[in-house]
Every structure is written in structure tokens, then in C-alpha cells.
Design a protein around this nucleic acid. Structure first.
Lengths: 174, 174
DNA sequence: GTCTATAAATCGATAGAC
DNA sequence: GTCTATCGATTTATAGAC
């Protein structure tokens, strides 16, 4: 799994994976159906974690802004907890059926965020400094980019990210 | 080139590239030294474009905040102009010597941004709502994430991004 | 459950005719 | 410059002994 992250899915061979597991390639095939099955399981785990946030009570009740803050915070938490799986999800290009399935579900998740951003703007809770659809994309991009550098132990990260998103990454002093 | 973007570098074969060019694989090798040479040239182009921003007068004179705003704006402009090259750069994992070279130069670029963020905070020009090093990472992540969805034609994007970064992606209303 | 051996396909790259 | 043909290595995956 960690092999997929460091080298990339396509550049990682079953030989690489089995060696990392300390067994031969044949033995490795005894435990896992194949390369795509491994990928599929990892993508499912990441997507299940993300969609679970949307079903929580705090994500379905209250003002659009409060729900949005809760979801962003939860998104960072899932990213922390399932880092390798979410990382893999965010790097999928759509080369196989499993990858295309994951891309579609990811798009559905992002669309829910985008519609919530729009609702918060229309409710007058946040300012529309930039187009709501653009704001939603930049928001998702900022959150997702965390997988590129996060290492376990930074417990205050979710709150910091929420602050950066809603108060400004680099707000003017004064 | 576009093949590397849609399928990923590792999942794209020389056969794929030559077919896209309308010639056989052998003929393709007559024009290009090999797969790594293609990657290397693309990465160089992306990095040259990014580092060129740092050498411009507006990026080396004036207050840290003004320089930072100029660089962020320029970064988005380079990303728009050299989209496939920058996209490739941001997806490199470090599997070959060329990739490791590119990763190192990218880190040097990000480090310059980070030190400028720190200078702006210490000069009292921006607030330190979050740790400056974290703010710099989120800033780079937000900007880089644009390659995931940008399509030509959105000329006002650099200004919008600067606004989102310095005024807040989703600032509170009022 | 682990191994050796190997199949069948594909990979990056080259030889050499035209 | 383009082609057919092919090399040698590597790929995913399987067969079958222990």
C-alpha cells in the first residue's frame, strides 16, 4: 500500500509489493486477487470515509455555513486517518474501470461541497469575493493538497485548515 | 505530451505516444531520444517558467506582501500558459533521476515562497492566523490544485486566485 | 501458505531495409 | 523519415510441487 504512494500505482509492480510484504510474488497472489483488486479496495475505503462525513447529523442539519465548516473539518480528519487511501484516490487518472468508478464518486462528493458553498453564499453567510463554483474548487484543492506533505502527529490541523479557509490563508494585518 | 497528462507518465507507453503522433514507434524514436528525455524536457520547461517569475523586478523589490502577491499571480499565469508541463511536474514521484532532479527544484521554489510568507508575517503585513509554514503549504497547494480542473479561456483567474488567497476563500459576510 | 518455474503479453529501445 | 522485425527485460498472473 505504502508502495503505491511512494512510487505511484502504475510504477509499482506486484514484485515490488510482494518483496515489501516479505514473501514471493506467487505467495502474494494467494492473498490478493490481483493488482486492480488492491487498488479497488483502497479506493473504496477512501471514498467510504469521505461519504460517511456527509451522512453525519452535523452535516445535514443547521445553516449551510455551519454544515460546510463541519464537513471541511471532517474531510481533513479522514485525510489524516486514512492518508494512504485518500492519497491514492486523489492520484487516480481513470485508466481502468475501478479508477473511472472512483473518479465518478469523487466528482459526486465535490459536487455536494460545491452546492453547499453556493447555498451559503445565497443565504448571505459568506461573501462572494470570487465565483462560488471557483471558491468550491479552490477549497477542495487546498484540502486535498494536504496529502502531499502531511505526516502523522499534527492534531490541530483540522481546526487550522478551517481557520485558513474561512478567515483567509494570508489575511491582511490590522 | 497530452498523453502523459491523461493517462499518467508511467501508464503511457512509447507505443501510445507514437500512435498519437500518427507514426510507428520506430519512427517516433527517430525524433526523440527516449521516454525519459521527453519527460525531462517537459519538466525543464515547467521549472524554467516558474523560476523566471522569481527573477522579475516586481518579485525582488518592494514589500514582502507585494512581492508575494506578484509571485502568486505569476504562478497562476505560468500554470495557464504551460498547463501540461506544470501538470506533469506536479505529478512526479521521484522514480528516475530526472524526476528526483525536478522534485528538488520544486522544493527550492516552494521554499522561496515559504520564506516570503514568513517575511510578510514578520513585517506585520499579514496576520498569522495559522503558522506561516502551514499557510505557505496551503497556499502552494491551492495554487497547484488548479491544474486538476483548469481549461483555457478563464483570463481573470490570476486575479481571482490572488483575491481568494489574501481576502479568504470563503470570507464571512458583512 | 510458501515456494520454483513459467506462460503470455507488453515494455523501452534498436537493427537495418527502403 | 518511415517502416517491419525483433531483442532483452519486465509485466501480471498461473501451474503445480511441498
Amino acid at each position: 500500500m505504502g508502495e503505491f504512494i511512494t512510487r505511484g500505482y502504475d510504477a509499482t509492480s506486484m514484485e515490488d509489493l510482494s518483496r515489501a510484504a516479505g514473501i514471493t510474488k506467487s505467495s502474494f497472489y494467494h492473498h490478493f486477487a490481483g493488482k486492480d483488486a488492491l487498488l479497488r479496495a483502497a479506493l473504496e475505503r477512501a471514498l467510504d470515509g469521505l461519504f460517511a462525513i456527509l451522512d453525519e447529523p452535523a452535516a445535514t442539519t443547521g445553516s449551510p455555513l455551519a454544515r460546510l465548516r463541519y464537513i471541511v473539518r471532517g474531510q481533513v480528519t479522514v485525510l489524516q486517518h486514512d492518508l494512504p487511501y485518500v492519497t491514492l484516490l486523489l492520484r487516480v487518472r481513470g485508466n481502468t474501470e475501478s479508477e473511472r468508478w472512483a473518479l465518478e464518486r469523487r466528482r459526486a462528493f465535490d459536487a455536494q461541497i460545491a452546492s453547499l458553498v453556493l447555498a451559503a453564499v445565497e443565504a448571505g453567510e459568506i461573501r462572494a469575493g470570487v465565483e462560488p463554483a471557483l471558491a468550491a474548487r479552490l477549497l477542495s484543492g487546498l484540502v486535498n493538497s494536504i496529502v502531499e506533505w502531511y505526516r502523522p502527529g499534527r492534531t490541530e490541523l483540522p481546526d487550522d485548515v478551517v481557520r485558513a479557509v474561512f478567515d483567509g490563508i494570508l489575511p491582511a494585518a490590522g
